[in-house]
Nucleic acid binder design. Structure first.
Length: 499
RNA sequence: GGUCGGUUGGCCGAGCGGUUAGGCAGGGCUCUGCAAAAGCUCGUACAGCGGUUCAAAUCCGCUACCGACCUCCA
C-alpha cells in the first residue's frame, strides 16, 4: 500500500510507522555527530549524507526542522573506563604535543570542509560536549537524586539494575536485547571492579592524574561519560521527547541504549519518538572502520590515490553512488560500482540540463504519455514517503531521463503533452535532484572564456565537417577527448561536456 | 557462544505474496562521414532443500555461506 503519508522505519518498533511530529509543523531531529580526533572516513560520511537527505526531504515536505548534530570533543574513550582507557582527543593531543582544543579545531574544520564538499546542509545547531559541561553535571545530579546512579571513588555510574526495576522493558528494547541476554553477555567481561553490576555505565568519570581535559564537579575533578552529552544536548535544544533521533547502526548499543536510560533516569521519559539508524558502508564485505584499518578517506577517493581504485571519483558521483542504495542497507564499495555510478550520475545530470532547453509547442496531447510522465513525477514523492527510498526515487527519475532524451532526439520540441505537464516535469526534476537528493552539477563549466572558446572550436569543427575535411574535425574531437571533453553531435548541433 | 540481519542476473543494487525496478556492462537495430551521445530492442536472476498457498524472490522450517552488534566505532 502506498500513501501520501510519510512513513519512517522506527528501530524501536522495527516497523515503518506513520510520522507524526510532536508539534507539527515543527520537527526536532538529532543526529550523533563525529568524534573529532582524526579525519572523517567515508563510512562516517555516508551516515551524514543519509541524514542530510532526511533533513532535506522533511523541509521539502513543509516541516520546519531544527536539526541538531553534535561534535564530540570530550568523553569518548578508547576502551572501557575501568581498563586503563584514554580519552580519544586527549590521546591525540598527547601524541601530537598539541592542546586538546587544537585537535578538536583541526578535525572539526576538516569535517566541515568534507560535509561541504559532499553538499550536505549544515545543521541548525552544532553543539559541543565541552560547551555543555554545566548541563551535563546537572543531569548527573538529577539522576543521582532520582536514585538511579551511585558514586564510586569519584566516578558516577548509572545503576542499570535499579533502572530496570523502575522502568521495566525499557533498557535493551532499542537494540533488541532482553535483560537475561544483557546479563549473560556482560558477565564475560572482566575487571569491572567499581561497578555494582557489569552493565552499569559511567556518566561521570574521575580524571586520572595526567588527564588533560577535566572539570570540577561535586564528585570529583573529571569529565562526562560519552553517552551523556547526547542526552543533554538533544533535550536542551529540542525538548523532551523530540521527534527523530538518528545515527549509525553501530551506535544502537551501547550508545543509544544508554542515552535512553539517562533520559528516563533524569526526567522519566524517552528522548525521542522515532529512532533511525543508517547502515554501514562496507569495504570488501567488511564494515569500514578506522580501528580495523579498513577505511578509505574521501580524499583518496577523489584523487584515486589508492590501490583499490583505478581512478578518482567526484564527490557528487560518490553521493549519487550512496543514494542508489537504501540507507538501511549495507553498501559495499568497489571500483566497479563507483564507475557504474559515475556514468549513471552523468546521464542523470545531462538529462537535467537538456530538460530546461526543451521548448513546448501546442499539439495533440498523447494521453498515455502525459499520464506516464506525471505518474513518474508523483512516484518520487511516494518513494521518499516510504522511509526515504532514494533508490526508487532515482529509478523514477531515470524513467523521466528516458523521456527527456527522447524529446531531445525529436528536436527538443515538446508537443504531445501539455505545457503544465512539461513544467511539472521540470519542477520535479529540479526539486528532487537539487533540493531533496542534494545533487549538483560538478563545478567549473560556468567559465565565460571556456564557454566562448568551446563555441569557437565547435564552430570551426562544424565548418570542416561541411567541407568533408574529416581529418581536421576528427583531430579536434580526439584532442578534446584527451582533455576529457566530450563532443556530442545531435540533431540540434553539437554540444559538449566534461567526461 | 548469544542476539539480529543478509545471500537477487556479468557487476552494483530495489522490490518483500500475483504487476518492467533502476544504473553499469554485453548483443542487435536506428541516427551519424566515422565514432561518441541518444533512442528502440534482446538476453542472462532471485543460495540450497522442504512446506504453506490458486499463486512465493517475497510467508514458514531446515541447511550452507556472509556480515553487524554483544568492546571504541557513523
Amino acid at each position: 500500500m502506498q500513501s501520501n503519508e510519510l512513513k519512517i522505519f522506527n528501530t524501536l518498533s522495527r516497523t515503518k510507522e506513520v510520522f507524526k511530529p510532536v508539534n507539527a509543523p515543527f520537527v526536532g531531529m538529532y543526529v550523533c555527530g563525529p568524534t573529532v580526533y582524526s579525519n572523517v572516513h567515508l563510512g562516517n560520511c555516508r551516515t551524514f549524507i543519509s541524514f542530510d537527505v532526511v533533513y532535506r526531504y522533511l523541509m521539502h515536505a513543509g516541516f520546519k526542522v531544527r536539526y541538531v548534530r553534535n561534535i564530540t570533543d570530550v568523553g569518548h574513550l578508547t576502551g572501557d573506563v575501568d581498563i586503563g582507557s584514554e580519552d580519544k582527543i586527549g590521546k591525540m593531543a598527547r601524541l601530537q604535543k598539541l592542546e586538546p582544543m587544537e585537535i578538536v579545531q583541526q578535525y572539526t574544520n576538516g569535517f566541515h570542509d568534507m560535509m561541504r564538499v559532499f553538499n550536505t546542509l549544515p545543521p541548525s545547531i552544532e553543539p559541543t560536549a565541552t560547551g555543555h559541561i554545566v548541563e551535563q553535571v546537572e543531569m548527573v545530579k538529577e539522576i543521582i537524586d532520582n536514585g538511579l546512579a551511585y558514586v564510586q571513588n569519584g566516578s558516577v555510574y548509572l545503576d542499570t539494575q535499579a533502572f530496570i526495576g523502575k522502568y521495566p522493558g525499557v533498557y535493551g528494547k532499542l537494540s533488541g536485547k532482553d535483560q537475561d541476554n544483557l546479563q549473560t553477555e556482560t558477565r564475560a567481561l572482566k575487571n569491572q571492579s567499581e561497578k555494582k553490576h557489569p552493565s552499569d555505565f559511567a556518566i561521570w568519570v574521575k580524571a586520572p592524574e595526567d588527564h588533560l581535559m577535566h572539570w570540577p564537579s561535586p564528585w570529583s575533578t573529571g569529565f562526562p561519560g560519552w553517552h551523556l552529552e547526547c542526552s543533554v544536548m538533544s533535550t536542551k535544544y529540542l525538548g523532551s521527547p523530540f521527534d527523530i533521533h538518528g545515527g549509525g547502526m553501530d551506535l544502537q548499543f551501547p550508545h543509544h541504549e544508554n542515552e535512553i536510560a539517562q533520559n528516563f533516569s533524569a526526567c522519566g521519559c524517552a528522548p525521542s519518538n522515532y529512532w533511525m539508524h543508517g547502515n554501514m558502508l562496507l569495504m570488501n564485505g567488511k564494515k569500514m572502520s578506522k580501528s580495523d584499518g579498513n577505511s578509505v578517506m574521501p580524499e583518496e577517493l577523489f584523487s584515486g590515490d589508492s590501490p583499490l581504485l583505478t581512478k578518482g571519483y567526484s564527490p557528487m558521483a560518490v553521493r549519487f553512488f550512496m543514494l542508489q542504495t537504501h540507507y538501511r542497507s549495507t553498501l559495499d564499495i568497489s571500483d566497479g560500482a563507483l564507475q557504474a555510478a559515475e556514468k549513471g550520475f552523468k546521464r542523470l545530470m545531462d538529462a537535467y540540463k537538456t530538460l530546461f532547453a526543451l521548448k513546448h509547442s501546442d499539439g495533440s496531447i498523447n494521453e498515455s504519455e502525459e499520464v506516464e510522465i506525471t505518474a513518474a513525477c508523483d512516484a518520487c514523492y511516494t518513494h521518499m514517503n516510504d522511509d526515504f527510498n532514494t533508490p526508487m526515487t532515482l529509478a523514477s527519475l531515470f524513467t523521466l531521463v528516458n523521456k527527456i532524451n527522447t524529446y531531445k532526439d525529436g528536436g527538443s520540441v515538446v508537443s504531445n503533452i501539455s505545457q503544465a505537464a512539461l513544467e511539472k516535469l521540470q519542477q520535479t526534476f529540479k526539486e528532487f535532484i537539487e533540493d531533496v537528493l542534494g545533487l549538483k552539477e560538478e563545478a567549473s563549466t560556468d567559465d565565460k572564456i571556456v564557454d566562448g572558446l568551446m563555441e569557437l572550436i565547435i564552430d570551426i569543427r562544424q565548418e570542416s565537417r561541411i567541407n568533408k575535411d574529416w581529418s581536421t574535425s576528427d583531430k579536434i574531437r580526439d584532442t578534446l577527448n584527451e582533455l576529457e571533453v566530450q563532443l556530442k553531435d545531435g540533431k540540434e548541433g553539437t554540444s559538449w561536456s566534461k567526461l
